[in-house]
Simulated assay, not measured.
Amino acid sequence: MRPFDDIDRLAAWPALDKVAAPARDLVNKLLTNRKVADVLHGVPIGHPLHPALVQLTLGSFVSASLLDALPGTRRSAGTLVGVGLVSALPTIAAGWADYSQAHEEQQRVGIVHAASSATMVSGYAVSLVQRLRGRSGRARLWGWGALAVGSAGAVLGGHMSYHQALGANHAEGYPHIGPEDWTDVGTLDELPEGAPTRRVVGDVGIVLVRRGQEIRALGERCSHASAPLSDGELTVEDGQECLVCPWHASVFRLDDGKVVHGPATAPAPTFPTRVRDGRVELRVATWPGVPAS
C-alpha cells in the first residue's frame, strides 16, 4: 500500500461533505467582495497566495519549536510563535478562499487540513500564553504537540497541491503541445460573430471569438480547474472584452489571456491568428500572458 492511499480514501469519503459543503457555502456567503477575493486567491501576484503565506506561518512555528530544544533561546522562540500567530490570519483567509472554489474531493481533504491547521494554531496560542506566564516547560510541550498536528496537516496541504492539483496551472501544457506552425482551423464564415467557439487542433482544444475579420484565440481549458472556456460567456471589463469561465467565473482578457478576476491566477494561453483566403489559421507562439503578435 502506498503511504498516501489513505488520503485518497479521505478524498472519496462522502460523509465529510456534511461538514465540507456547509463550510464552503459559508465562505462564499461571507466572501462577496470580488477585489478582496482576488487578493486572497493571489490574482495580483499571478500565483496562489496561500502557499506563499504558509511558508511564513509554518516556518515561524517550526523555527520556534527548534529553538525550544536549545538553551537560552526562550525569548527568540516566543517572538517566532507570535510572528506565526499573526501571519496565520491572512494565511487562513487565503486558504479558505481557495477552498471555496475547489471541487468536492479537494474540499474533503481540505476540511481535514483546515481542522489540523486550526488545532496547530490553537496549540501555539496556548503555548504563547504559557510563555507569557513564565511556564516555559508547558509552553514547549504545547508547541511541540501543535507542530506534530500541523505537520500532518501540511502533508494534506501538499497532497492537495501536488496530487489533487489545487492551485496548479491547468493550462501550462499549451505552449508545449500546441501547433508551432500555422494550422488551419476552418473557414472564417463558419465562426459565429461574438460567440465563443470550440475548435480542436491535434490534441489541443482552442476557443475562438470572432469580431469581424479579427479572431481571438485562447486555450480552451481554464487554468484554474480545466473548465471548458468555450462554454463561457463574453463580458467587458475596463473596456476590454473578456471571457468568463463557466465553472468558477474566472475572467480572462481576450487580447492577452490576462486574469482579470480569479480564482484563476495563471493567464490563459493565447494563439496568434490570421485569415488567409477566407480560412482561419493559428499557432502557438507565446507563453501565457504575453500578447500574441
Rank of each mutant, 00 (worst) to 15 (best):
R75I: 02
A264R: 11
T119E: 05
G178L: 09
A23S: 11
V62W: 07
A115L: 10
D8S: 09
D98P: 03
Q130D: 15
E190T: 10
L229Y: 06
T273W: 09
T57G: 01
P288W: 01
D68T: 05
L56Q: 01
T197P: 08
V201N: 11
A88H: 08
D231M: 06
V209C: 05
K18L: 15
P196V: 03
P246G: 07
G178E: 11
S161R: 00
S76R: 12
E190V: 07
P22V: 07
H41L: 04
D184E: 12
A93T: 07
V251P: 08
S127R: 02
G239R: 09
F252K: 06
G158S: 10
A93P: 08
H159N: 07
R75W: 00
V112F: 09
G153T: 12
L40A: 11
L141W: 14
S161V: 04
E214L: 14
V155W: 06
D181P: 04
A114Q: 11
S87V: 14
V201P: 12
W247M: 10
S63H: 03
R283Y: 09
Q164S: 15
V260G: 08
D38I: 04
G143M: 00
F61V: 12
R140W: 00
V54N: 08
V81Q: 05
G150V: 09
V236W: 08
D5K: 13
V81W: 00
K35D: 14
D5P: 07
A97G: 12
L234P: 01
Y124L: 11
W247P: 07
T91P: 02
A165W: 12
D181A: 15
E281V: 05
P192Q: 06
A154T: 15
S230K: 03
E105K: 15
V185Q: 08
L218P: 06
L191K: 04
G167D: 08
D98H: 05
D68V: 04
R210S: 02
L282P: 08
T235C: 08
P269C: 08
A69W: 02
R108S: 09
L188E: 03
L80I: 12
L229I: 10
H261K: 11
P192A: 04
A165G: 05
V129P: 06
S250G: 01
R9K: 08
L243E: 13
V259F: 08
L89I: 15
A285I: 00
Q164T: 04
S223P: 12
E172P: 03
V149N: 02
Q130V: 04
G262T: 11
